[in-house]
């Protein structure tokens, strides 16, 4: 399976809306935890778990540590999917 960035975003949006319990959330690359009320560490891992399951990937520890925004996440996912 190969995705490009345009295909990753809608899938992420679905995950984000469900995990963060905000049905109208629109995600952008510059979105961070500060912008979403329910985005705390617990929902953050739920989101990571959900992303890993949906895309069938395992995000390595170092990459997780360096992620700060949705943009970082998207880049990470596409990188992992290409390799």
């Amino acid at each position: 399976m190969s995705y490009n960035i345009d295909e990753i975003m809608p899938k992420l949006q679905v995950i984000f809306r469900e995990v963060f319990d905000e049905p109208n959330l629109i995600i952008k690359p510059e979105l961070t935890a500060n912008d979403v009320a329910q985005w705390d560490s617990l929902t953050h891992i739920a989101m990571i778990n959900s992303v890993e399951q949906t895309f069938g990937i395992v995000i390595p520890f170092q990459m997780l540590m360096e992620m700060e925004s949705v943009g970082d996440l998207v880049q990470g996912i596409s990188q992992l999917l290409q390799s």
Binding site: N49, F61, L64
Partner: peptide, 17 residues
Amino acid sequence: LYYPIVYRFRKYPTLAV
């Protein structure tokens, strides 16, 4: 400390937190 632990045990989110 926090995120290294949480990520390591992320299969059990609540316990990890």
